[in-house]
Amino acid sequence: MECTGQKEQGNLTTFVEFILLGFADVPDLQGFLFGVFLVIYLIILIGNSLIIIITKVDPSLQTPMYFFLGNFSFLEICYVSVTVPRLLVDLCQQNRNISLLACATQMYFFLVLGATECFILTAMAYDRYVAICNPLMYPLVMNTRLCIQLAAGCWISGMPVNIGFTYLIFSLPFCGPNQLDHFFCDVPPVLKLACGNTFIIELLIYVITVLVVTIPFLLILGSYAQIISTILKLPSATGQAKAFSTCSSHLMVVALFFGSGIITYMRPKSSHSVGMGRFLSLFYTIVTPMFNPMIYCLRNKDVMVALRKFLSK
């Protein structure tokens, strides 16, 4: 494929756009992949929209736990909408060029929403920790004001860091091939095309990953260590089962999202392979958001009851 979007700077050729290769290596499967990803996208939109609606209209779900679940579902819609619509368009056309500005914008929103997801999952873990470990204090601690402050903090916290980080990445010269071997502008494949010194940015990736991914993940693990310890001290098996059931959905979502994210961004550069990177990206950008509404609906009796009531109307 011929490189386009070049401009000369002295003896250096830099690029003003990339070519998103996506799944161009399997031309016979373009139509099939379009159908699969379209169905998945619709499942994500419909599933999360239903959760947002029932957490707003059902009186039994007007609690902090479901307030955060509503925020999480809205976040999932935003998160997949950063990458999937562009992927669907690229599967239908030959021209897959994307300008540096569009690429930087996509990367920025992807990073911000990914950080927000880490923080909201942490806030949800804190909510379960207070509910199970300090049930008498729960209404006082998890009041409306704190819930709104926590949610706002989750949405806003990742914005300033990722503005600077994205700016640093796209300040680098891109003078090699401009074919981005990925289906969206993720950090590792974009950095592969940079011909400047990327050491500082690679160091920043580890620092930001620790702050945004690893620390929230450790806080969640700490919360669940306390939760499990408290549950095991409950006198009745019925009480233990009920307490576990309120946490199991969240724990499964945490394992899926953080597991694939940490493997993607914390693995050594020498182990980066195009196929594995693309697979992991598909997993945490598309597959996990598809399963989240199913996990929360099928494993949560309150949500199932509210959903049945809503659909029966």
Rank of each mutant, 00 (worst) to 15 (best):
V130E: 09
V130K: 11
I132F: 07
C133F: 05
C133N: 06
N134W: 02
P135F: 14
P135H: 11
M137F: 13
M137C: 15
Y138K: 09
Y138F: 09
P139E: 06
V141W: 05
V141G: 09
N143M: 11
T144K: 13
L150E: 04
L150M: 15
A151Q: 06
A152T: 12
A152W: 13
I156S: 14
G158S: 09
P160Y: 07
L168R: 15
L168V: 05
I169T: 00
S171F: 04
S171D: 02
S171V: 03
L172V: 11
P173D: 02
F174A: 15
G176F: 02
N178R: 07
Q179N: 14
D181N: 15
D181V: 11
H182K: 10
H182W: 12
F183G: 01
C185R: 08
D186F: 13
D186E: 07
P188S: 12
P188I: 11
V190S: 00
K192R: 13
L193S: 15
A194W: 08
A194F: 09
G196H: 10
G196I: 03
T198S: 08
T198M: 11
E202N: 10
E202F: 10
L203R: 12
I205E: 15
I205V: 15
Y206G: 08
V207W: 08
I208K: 00
I208N: 03
V210Y: 11
V212M: 04
V213I: 09
T214H: 03
F217A: 01
F217G: 03
L219E: 04
I220Y: 02
L221C: 14
L221V: 14
G222F: 00
S223K: 01
S223W: 00
Y224S: 02
A225T: 06
Q226D: 10
I227S: 10
I228W: 01
I228A: 04
S229V: 14
T230E: 12
K233M: 05
L234E: 05
T238F: 01
Q240L: 12
Q240G: 07
Q240M: 10
A241L: 12
K242P: 07
K242G: 11
K242R: 13
S245W: 07
S245N: 10
T246D: 03
C247Y: 08
S248A: 08
S249C: 02
H250Y: 07
H250K: 03
L251W: 06
M252K: 08
V253Y: 00
V254H: 03
F258T: 02
F258C: 01
G259F: 10
G259V: 13
